[in-house]
Simulated scan of single mutants.
Amino acid sequence: MLETNVCGLNFKNPLLLAAGVMGSHASSLNWILNSGASGVVTKSFSIEPNPGYHNPTTVPVEGGIINAIGLSSPGVENFKEELEQIDSKGVRVASIYGASPEEFSYLASEIEDLIDVIELNVSCPHAMCGYGSSIGQDPTLTEKIVKATKESCKVPVWTKLTPNVTSISEIAIAAEKGGSDAITLINSLGPGMKIDIKTGNPILSNKFGGMSGPAIKPIALRCVWDVYDSVEIPVIGVGGISNYKDVVEFLYAGASLVQIGTSIMDYGPEIFKTINTDLNEFIENSDFNSINDMVGYAHKKI
């Protein structure tokens, strides 16, 4: 009852691990797959190694966390070893980042034989200049990056967008024109900050970071709603999901799949099994026969 097909790939349920939370090690990603997720998204990685920002890189705040990891990356050559060890029983999604269409294209061609999907990170709010949201706020550059990536690989390409724009639908349409197979919404919100009132210093070493967790769910939900009405390709929802009711809302808003990240810190990997059990019970007690019946349901009620 929870099975679905998106971009020609079969998912045993609509729940995936979001990028970043479980780091770069295959053992951690396999743990999530064994805990009930239908797929995992790796931490974003680049061509060359990148140490990222110094600690502290995360700080809890009311409603979630603020993080500024700085897109730390082991580099593609080192990360290939981890990709090879991710269990193929789940859908393997590799998140990549770069500073130009050529860098994204190169990364995609290097890893396409090791994974099932490539997710383009053009949306990190705390990345160094020239990366992340500085790319994803430009529809023309976003379209060029997607197009270059699609031309260099045969696997589906998802584009993860930032909410920090005037019109997220405009960026989604540009990604679709570039050939994106799906749109992932949203990356963390911000940047935001927290100050230590004893020292007067910002807590994060980078001063600013991206906000994630339950507080951003209403914004993520609205972005999914808007983009579902704007493109013909599937939408993947992410942002503040912690229980089956959140998943139902995202499905109703137009998401075909959802990704879970920050909530794992509070509930552990068991959150996937819990949500799957509750979601299956919800469907059994409803008039729906499948996940597909629920996608965009709220739009049909207007």
Rank of each mutant, 00 (worst) to 15 (best):
L2P: 05
G8K: 07
K12T: 15
L15Q: 12
A18G: 06
M22A: 15
S24G: 00
L29F: 14
W31F: 10
W31Q: 14
I32H: 04
G36H: 11
G39Q: 10
P51N: 10
N55M: 05
T58L: 12
E62P: 01
I66D: 12
I66Q: 07
G70H: 08
G70L: 08
N78R: 13
A108M: 06
E110C: 10
L114I: 05
I118K: 04
L120Y: 08
V122C: 05
P125N: 04
A127I: 00
C129K: 03
Y131N: 04
Q137D: 00
Q137R: 13
T142R: 04
K144M: 06
I145Q: 02
I145R: 04
V146F: 05
W158T: 15
T159M: 02
T162I: 04
T162M: 08
V165Q: 04
T166C: 03
S167K: 06
G179R: 10
S180Q: 09
M193R: 11
S205G: 05
A215E: 09
K217G: 06
I219T: 14
D226L: 12
Y228P: 11
E232Q: 14
D246S: 04
G254R: 04
S256I: 09
V258Y: 11
I260N: 03
S263A: 15
S263D: 07
E270K: 14
F272G: 09
T277C: 07
I283W: 11
E284H: 08
Y297M: 08
K301W: 01
